[in-house]
Computed example of a mutant assay.
Amino acid sequence: MSQTKGEPWEYTLHIPHDLRAVTVCRRTLRLVLTVHGLIRLTDVAELLVTELVSNAVRHAKGPASLRLRWQNGVLRIGAWDANPEPPSAPQELACTVYAEAGRGLELVRACADDWGWYPLRQGGDRGKYVWCDLGAA
């Protein structure tokens, strides 16, 4: 039974340092959005999850996590990794059209309603959290 689309919810998926985790995260996202009656967000949300999680797995040494949060009609997708370095600035898609890398955050910037990042320090752990928002409208 699905919840009402207005009720807030949050899921966190802890993932290993393994590129196969990107597929697990996409499939988990699709299941979560389907259960909550938000299937219409799936295509764009899958692209956003793919970019954030693949960056977390590729550019950090260690585990990562995916957080999905629904609140006030907005889906926040976030990825934590143990690398405290800021993400690379988005490149213009026109400049990277033939490049094999470097388009991820530009796709996030282009497809999400908002995005950002912040460093994290908890106890002895360091890292960063990169997030993006996708509205239901």
Rank of each mutant, 00 (worst) to 15 (best):
L75Q: 06
L29T: 10
P16G: 09
C25D: 03
L120K: 15
P8R: 11
Y129K: 15
A110K: 13
R103G: 12
R126D: 12
R26I: 09
V97N: 03
L75A: 03
L19D: 09
V22M: 06
T28G: 03
A137H: 15
V22G: 04
D81K: 11
P86R: 10
Y11V: 14
Q122T: 15
R26L: 12
L107F: 04
D18R: 11
G62S: 15
L29M: 04
Q3L: 12
P86D: 14
G104K: 05
R76F: 03
R30L: 05
N83W: 11
K61L: 15
Q3P: 00
N72W: 07
T50M: 10
L52S: 04
M1K: 06
L93T: 10
E106V: 09
T50C: 13
G78R: 04
A99G: 06
L33Y: 06
A45E: 07
A89T: 13
G6P: 10
Q3C: 02
Y118Q: 13
D114F: 03
Q71P: 04
V53L: 05
R121D: 10
L105C: 07
P86A: 15
R126M: 12
R103Y: 11
K5G: 01
L38T: 05
T42L: 03
P63V: 13
D43E: 07
E46P: 02
T28L: 08
I77E: 00
I15F: 00
G73C: 10
H14D: 11
P84N: 06
A56R: 08
R27T: 06
